[in-house]
Design a protein around this nucleic acid. Structure first.
Lengths: 133, 133
DNA sequence: ACTATAGTGTTATAAAGTAGCGCTTGGGAA
DNA sequence: TTCCCAAGCGCTACTTTATAACACTATAGT
């Protein structure tokens, strides 16, 4: 199925891959509107949902934005580090942290299903060593 | 300062303490409007910002909602476990996880400043053992 | 008294996300 | 081959979440 249906999927994925920073749904909307000015939000959100389901993009919960997955493709939940200065997002994988997390939250019988880990800070390029005073 | 200014702070804190689940800004707005029907969103968001600064509440980034801080008061960042079934939120502290996290994200020179850790899942009361079939 | 500041009131608007309908297409079942 | 289904999309309208900007009041400190 879907040879004609995937029109926007590739288009949107491209937008993400061309951007080094998080992109909001409405920013995507604007770009798509350069192609078809009548596109509405639901189209964008549907594409985003599909791409998330395929693990091709991540949602940045703390920013209401999205980034493309940088890893080849792991089903491991990702640790996202966000530079509050330049907006760059880096992705790390650390299964042992997820295990520790699950075990800590599991102490009360909680069963973890989805980990949201976002670290805000300043990246190497923006850090104090690079921009002293 | 502030004997008259803090009107809403205590009121809002009370709302949080009476609720076992996350509360949205607009839910708070509704409650405040029972007292003063003319209250508008900015008032609520200002109170929330103040309470966050005092570390009395946490923002649940993945839900656009807020919960009161359950710990006595640590400046440690909290791990929030959210039951997607009943909405209950539990708070855990695990400095060693934060250290691990900072060290992992720091490998590329990233300097961590704010950790967002939210774990979605199912709590003990809602788990499969409690509701089999 | 004067001033800085924290908290609030108010209007308007921006930004983010969803409900719900219906159309088209292509692949598989009958 | 015909029918139906699922995926992707168009579109309208709407809800929810959040902020900008400006004004006012009261208290604490000097």
């Amino acid at each position: 199925m879907t040879k004609r249906g995937e029109t926007w999927h590739a288009e949107v994925l491209d937008i993400f891959r061309r951007s080094s920073s998080p992109v909001t749904a409405y920013e995507i909307l604007e770009v798509l509107r350069e192609v078809n000015p009548k596109i509405a939000p639901p189209t964008v959100y549907r594409v985003l949902a599909a791409l998330m389901e395929r693990r091709l993009i991540h949602r940045l919960e703390s920013m209401n934005a999205f980034v493309s997955c940088q890893c080849d493709h792991h089903d491991q939940p990702a640790i996202l580090s966000i530079c509050d200065d330049c907006g760059t997002v880096e992705e790390s994988i650390a299964p042992e942290i997820m295990d520790r997390l699950s075990s800590i939250t599991g102490k009360t019988g909680f069963s973890a299903q989805r980990h949201v880990i976002e670290v805000h800070g300043v990246c190497a390029s923006c850090g104090p060593l690079q921009a002293p005073a």
